[in-house]
Design a protein around this nucleic acid. Structure first.
Lengths: 359, 359
DNA sequence: CGGCCTTGCGCAAGCGCTTTCTGTCGCGTC
DNA sequence: GACGCGACAGAAAGCGCTTGCGCAAGGCCG
């Protein structure tokens, strides 16, 4: 690298490079853009000029003149939420692999902001915008998603939904789900197999599809094992550490410990429940067995048996599908739908229920 | 909102809106852009046309013709790393508050990729690019940062460093640090005050500024309290859960428990150490007291006394300073340097050392 | 050894928007 | 009642780049 003679005053343009290399702008553009025959000698001259001028292309001009902008956007509630951060990570990785840049926007869970951002992404010409986070799937929701998808589609973008309920077949979008029901089925089966029949379920949330899927899987396992579901063993409440703690504490204070195991709706809730249990003199898994859901860091910290969700792959799959829709389009309708498997991770929070009846 | 007569074939442009509203493009631009007198009636016509055509501006064209692009970029190792996620969150928030979009790029800790991304950001015309993550501050590092800062500066961007060592005064950049030394001083003082004089320090890493700061604070506290530092109580190793576990385990297996408290370089290391301790039959805080650093989720989960770092504020401060450099520029030199305070968070992992004082 | 088909390059027309620079009114002023 | 000025709107010149089209060489054929 030779000493730059030209102390760039502002910023070198294509024209400057062309002048310096003694060729036309088109040539420079083609050398840089590739995919066009160029004499080795010319190429070298151009490259040298670029070097000397410390030329950097203007992405906006390029996007304007050429095709689009090679950008993918992800709207999350907050990247500080572990679950979403993992997904964002996957999105970012796949975007990078596909030579795209990744715009991350936090909606704070506010539908208004989500809407505003989608509009913004339209302006940006993002190739794909992926939405993360559970949501209540009412009529208004579907109407809004349809509108988004179509608007985005018209602009050549693609809408991708992760962990959200599927849309109508004719809505041009990518939907990537994970198997909440199946994971819960596996978790409860595991408990059942260990002899636990009185299982406390923490975190029933009607209308919230993720939570509903988990409860459904739990119930199905119970049924398949011929264990009657006891309404009193299903406690309603949000996911999360604090709710988990509170649900558990309330249950402990209001009644007997008539269960030998607990299925917490998500890992943080399990962590909260464990704390409440401990404050009540109960140990996991010595006194009570516990399984969680999501496989977050806390689960491995606590040695918690839980259900693994392929977070990163969710993100990757979403952008992969959205970007290469040309292939996926084969599905006739605009909707591309994938459901990824979840997997039971066995650690040390479940012990066989010794006092169980032999079945 | 009336039914759209015009089913946009592709995407409406400014020209289309102008035509539909019966005015010139300039007028539409001004109505939309604001900051220019416009007759109420005209404005209304334009707005209606925009609505009917579902017009969305082209951000790239706007960036090209107008000023810049209203974008801020953050380069992190990974958003899946809690510490960095919090900072990213702060960056994103402040960017949004300042009407900017936030580009997030994962470098995976690879300097090469960091470099490539900075170049990319130059193309994007990002107003500011913030770098997160500790690093060994050798000569090459400084040279590289200087080069980045100057290149970005020439393009009208601004470089911001979070948690990295300060640069030369003449390098145009924003540096936001947090007080590693002070936090460690507070943590060790706390331990000392509780009667602990034999404190095991986990995580010495020569050359790594963050770690060095913490150790320095620890040592200074020891000195101030008149406690002689014992080389054998300082164990070298990386931060993180696994290293913490391993350091602790190795120490436990190789020698006596000749300490009553432990100062772990960061919370994950503390968590790992706690696990190793437990496997060794030692309880925290019953048998050994423990303090960590960073105040991550795991600390609150474990009831760990630790040092809080204002993660989000670090991110916010960095972009705020970078964006409003005009004000900050008053500092003559290009360098803007801030150091944010850290704070001791007392929880339940430290117990007074009863057998102390009267040795 | 000339016509023809590459191969390599330049010309110029935009991409969709912002922003001067010019007007063109309509009204208050002396 | 002519003049000046403020409030608006239009024309047009780019912003920096990509790309279709056309044209010059050089290598191949017959």
């Amino acid at each position: 690298m030779t000493e730059n003679v030209t102390a760039a005053p502002g910023r070198a343009t294509l024209r400057d490079v062309a002048a310096r290399a003694g060729v036309s702008m088109s040539t420079v553009s083609r050398v840089l853009g590739g995919g066009y025959p160029t004499a080795a000698k010319t190429k070298e001259k151009v490259l040298r000029a670029v070097e000397e001028l410390d030329y950097v292309a203007n992405a906006h001009a390029r996007a304007l003149a050429g095709g689009g902008s090679k950008t993918v956007a992800i709207l999350v509630g907050s990247v500080a939420i572990e679950f979403q951060a993992y997904i964002a990570q996957g999105v970012e990785e796949q975007a990078t692999d596909d030579k795209h840049l990744c715009l991350v926007c936090s909606t704070g869970g506010d539908p208004e902001r989500e809407l505003a951002y989608i509009q913004l992404m339209r302006e940006q010409g993002a190739r794909a915008v992926v939405l993360v986070g559970t949501v209540v799937a009412d009529e208004a929701y579907h109407a809004r998603m349809r509108q988004f998808a179509q608007a985005l589609d018209a602009a050549g973008s693609r809408l991708a939904l992760i962990g959200r309920p599927p849309l109508a077949r004719d809505v041009p979008a990518v939907v990537v789900e994970f198997d909440n029901e199946g994971g819960a089925y596996a978790a409860t089966s595991h408990l059942l197999t260990q002899g636990h029949e009185r299982i406390l379920y923490l975190g029933k949330q009607p209308g919230q599809t993720t939570a509903e899927g988990r409860l459904a899987g739990h119930l199905r396992a119970l049924a398949d094992f011929g264990v009657e579901a006891d309404e009193s063993l299903i406690v309603a409440g949000e996911f999360g550490r604090l709710p988990g703690y509170q649900m558990m504490k309330a249950r402990l204070e209001s009644g007997p410990v008539d269960f030998t195991a607990i299925f917490a709706g998500d890992d943080p809730a399990a962590a909260g429940a464990i704390q409440a249990l401990r404050e009540h003199g109960l140990r996991v898994p010595d006194d009570v067995s516990m399984v969680g859901y999501d496989d977050l860091a806390v689960a491995s910290d606590l040695g918690l048996t839980t259900v693994h969700i392929p977070h990163e792959e969710l993100g990757r799959a979403a952008v992969r599908l959205a970007l290469h829709q040309a292939d996926a389009r084969g599905e006739e309708s605009g909707l591309v739908h994938r459901k990824l498997a979840t997997q039971l991770i066995v650690r040390d929070s479940v012990r066989p229920n010794v006092g169980a009846r032999k079945r």
